[in-house]
Design a protein around this nucleic acid. Structure first.
Lengths: 78, 78, 78, 78
DNA sequence: ACAGAAATAAAAATGC
DNA sequence: GCATTTTTATTTCTGT
């Protein structure tokens, strides 16, 4: 008898998901380590977090501005 | 016998929540109407939505900048 | 020549949208406060949320039943 | 004169953080793609998410049991 | 350790 | 119905 193909397929998907989730937690640990390291050098973690957040918002702003520009261009037939 | 005070209390809370949720859907309808209205005057809804979003992000940026400044000030003892 | 009416018009729309969005966040804060308040009296927030949701579904069901009734009534000439 | 070392140091930390955050979003996209793929094959995303979560809890439980076993073993000199 | 705040993940709702 | 946005739930982090 052959194995049930459907369930093997699902199993595959779950394996792949769990693999990427392992990678995710590894990288999250890396980030945590960086914060610990800079804290160890006397930097204020809360402040650095806020700087990172602010830079992220700035990037988002730029992206949204570009999208708006694209909309305008589309409206004038460019 | 008096009524169960606890359950009456919970009932009160739920009434208050449902009241504000009614207000919420009313205001969401108002917003929807405004978009319909401007669409009726030939404006592109998608574009206007993006402008509103962009302005919101800008406001957020300013707020985050102020918070960062506050952190800096606190760090130099202001 | 007068100022460009279109852009003033758009500005008006955006002002109105932002006004209703401010109202939205105000009312959301009210709701949040109610949840904080009932939490402070020992109620479980998550559970109360579920109750509110269930009651909403019930209300919806009742409304649908009434609409169906109206439909049938119309079909039999009531 | 050389550049201010402190600020360069902070800049380094921020660069490293942003680098790992980029990696994070890349991998999150990978995960999203897997869910899209399994959805495309007819699986229910929400249910698969639940399974993944359950397996995570199971793994945690097993790990805790092993740790407890190790503790007992140490206590009896194994 | 625990309360409150912030980040992330998941679910639900909305618009096209 | 599909995809994007919004809301809710869970998890993580930080300061007391």
């Amino acid at each position: 008898m052959t194995t049930n193909m459907s369930s093997g397929r699902l199993q595959d998907f779950i394996n792949r998901i769990e693999k990427v989730e392992d990678e995710l937690s590894g990288i999250k640990n890396d980030r945590k380590d960086i914060y610990l390291e800079l804290k160890g050098e006397g930097y204020d973690v809360k402040t650095v977090r806020k700087i990172v957040r602010l830079r992220k918002i700035d990037a988002l702003t730029r992206q949204q501005e570009e999208e708006l520009l694209d909309l305008y261009k589309a409206q004038v037939g460019l």
